[in-house]
Simulated assay, not measured.
Amino acid sequence: MQKDQLLTRRRALLAGAATLGAAGIAAALAPGAGNRGATASPPAAGAPPARRPLRPSEYRLRPLTGYGPPRTTPGRTPVREEPLLKVPDNGRTVVLTFDDGPDPRYTPRILDTLARYEVRAMFFVCGEMAEYNPHLLARMADEGHVVGNHTWTHPLLTKLRRRTIRSEMERTSDVVEKHYGSRPEWFRAPYGAWNRATFELGAELGMEPLAWTVDTLDWTEPGTRTIVGRVEDGAAPGVVVLSHDAGGDRSQSVKALRSYLPFLLDSGYHVTVPRREYV
């Protein structure tokens, strides 16, 4: 009896699926559909589609558009001669970036603050730190943050041979892919030391170079109020803010974020992350 009921239910489901239009089925099976909001079926004739206003958090979480015009050769990353310093002025947008982690002492506290205000940030991770803290990469993925490549051991790349630079970058991309779910699309040279080899190898690995506009110099531990002041004074449309979540005592960086993040939001800035439209 129970088996007959299951068969009857299955036939009913199959019959219902057969009534779906071809467009509805195609939308349901589209690649990445599970990662986006579900595509609604066309409304019945005469019934206007329902629209609801976006909540402030939803607006904040909108990613920015990519840099420059679409490339003519899909899949190839251009080799730049200098890193990107800011994002397009698409309204009052600010990007927060954190280097050198993830660190189990400070990164979770930064993630907690970002989650409280429903905003996303970029984390340029070092491969050796990511390997020891894979759960933090998984959390970054779950909460919509962008993970970039900051090499494996944080060396001065301009003093290394080309094959060593590649190893530093490639190993980090591998561990990010393993624990974050995808390979990084952005990289940042340690100490901001770039050369032709770093740009070429980064492009070969499918990554764009991103530097910063506002340097908090938080690694010098200047005091929480000083870090806050540097962010608030430097805030402007399109700026990229550099802070750290590892590499030393970052308790000041954690406390500063709790102060300047609500200031930025109350000042009308949209704290978000860049997105490459063509990778």
Rank of each mutant, 00 (worst) to 15 (best):
P104K: 06
R76W: 08
R116E: 13
G24E: 10
V254W: 11
L137M: 10
L20S: 13
P48S: 13
R171Y: 03
P190Y: 04
G46S: 05
G229I: 01
S253I: 00
R276V: 07
D174V: 09
L61W: 06
T39L: 14
G181F: 07
D249I: 00
Y278K: 05
V147E: 03
T113F: 02
H145C: 12
L14T: 12
F123K: 08
P78M: 04
L136S: 13
L114R: 05
T224V: 15
P222A: 09
E118T: 09
Q252A: 13
V240T: 13
G148F: 04
G101T: 11
L54V: 01
P104E: 12
P237H: 08
T39G: 12
Y59Q: 13
G37C: 05
P48V: 14
E200T: 12
S267N: 06
D4G: 05
E177L: 03
R10M: 09
R225N: 15
H179V: 08
D215H: 05
V146E: 04
G247D: 04
D89N: 14
A193Y: 06
Q5R: 11
A189D: 05
Y180C: 15
V147D: 03
T113W: 02
Y180H: 12
A28I: 04
G223A: 07
G229V: 06
V175Q: 02
V241Y: 00
Y269M: 15
A138K: 07
A138C: 05
D100K: 02
R161D: 07
I227R: 15
G16Y: 01
D112H: 12
R71F: 03
A30R: 14
V125I: 11
P56W: 15
R9S: 07
W152P: 03
Y117P: 08
A189R: 06
R62F: 05
H150Q: 12
P69L: 01
W212Y: 10
A33Y: 03
F124I: 14
N35K: 15
R225P: 14
R109H: 14
I165N: 00
G68E: 02
E143N: 03
A26C: 04
T151R: 12
R276C: 09
D215P: 14
P184L: 06
P74Y: 04
G144I: 11
D218A: 07
A246D: 14
A141W: 01
T226W: 01
P155G: 08
D99S: 09
